[in-house]
Amino acid sequence: MQINIDKVDRIILLLEENIKLLSENDEKRWAEVLIRLKRHYIENDNNEETLSLIRKLFGGAGTFNDVVLHKDGKPLIEENNQLEKSRHELYEECINKMTQ
């Protein structure tokens, strides 16, 4: 069974993509933050408050933007590139949804 992307909320898909990348690369704390936000987003009918909470992950020092995936003290280049792309798409999608 194939999922129709048009009928699935893109925010949920992007949250899931980020959660997967984080979980697979031992960033359990950040994965948990996104899991809680995804739950909140779904339970509160995709409201603007949750979009705002997600956007706040991206501002300031020590935030989601600062996460660097690594193994044995070495940055994981491919995984970090994927994470950066997915993070950026999540942020942009939140902005787009808030301005609709």
Rank of each mutant, 00 (worst) to 15 (best):
M1R: 01
M1V: 12
Q2L: 12
Q2S: 09
I3S: 13
I3W: 09
N4G: 03
I5W: 07
I5H: 13
I5C: 06
D6V: 10
D6N: 08
D6I: 14
V8L: 07
D9E: 06
D9L: 00
I11T: 14
I12T: 14
L13W: 09
L13F: 07
L14N: 03
L14K: 02
L14G: 04
L15R: 09
E16M: 13
E16D: 15
E16G: 08
E17Y: 06
E17V: 04
I19C: 07
K20A: 07
K20D: 03
K20V: 11
K20Q: 13
K20S: 13
L21Y: 10
L22P: 02
S23H: 05
S23D: 12
N25S: 00
N25A: 08
N25R: 01
E27G: 02
E27H: 11
K28F: 11
K28S: 07
W30N: 01
A31N: 04
A31R: 06
A31Y: 06
E32G: 13
V33T: 03
L34M: 13
I35S: 00
I35T: 10
I35G: 02
R36N: 04
R36F: 08
R36H: 03
R39S: 15
R39T: 15
I42C: 01
I42E: 12
E43Q: 14
E43Y: 09
E43F: 12
N44F: 08
E48N: 09
E49C: 06
E49S: 08
E49I: 11
T50P: 04
L51I: 02
S52D: 09
S52K: 10
S52T: 03
I54M: 07
I54Y: 08
K56N: 12
L57G: 08
L57H: 10
F58D: 10
A61L: 14
A61Y: 14
F64S: 00
N65V: 06
D66L: 05
V67M: 04
V67F: 10
V67G: 03
V68K: 12
V68N: 12
V68G: 04
L69M: 11
H70W: 04
H70R: 11
K71V: 09
K74H: 15
P75Y: 05
P75K: 14
P75M: 14
L76A: 01
L76H: 00
I77F: 04
E78L: 10
E78I: 05
E78F: 08
E78Y: 11
N80W: 07
N81H: 02
N81E: 05
N81L: 06
L83W: 00
E84G: 07
K85M: 10
S86D: 10
H88P: 00
H88G: 00
E89N: 10
E89I: 00
L90F: 01
L90D: 03
L90E: 03
Y91E: 05
Y91G: 02
E92I: 02
E92H: 05
E93P: 08
E93I: 03
C94E: 10
K97A: 11
K97I: 03
K97H: 09
K97D: 06
M98A: 14
M98Y: 05
M98W: 02
T99W: 05
Q100Y: 01
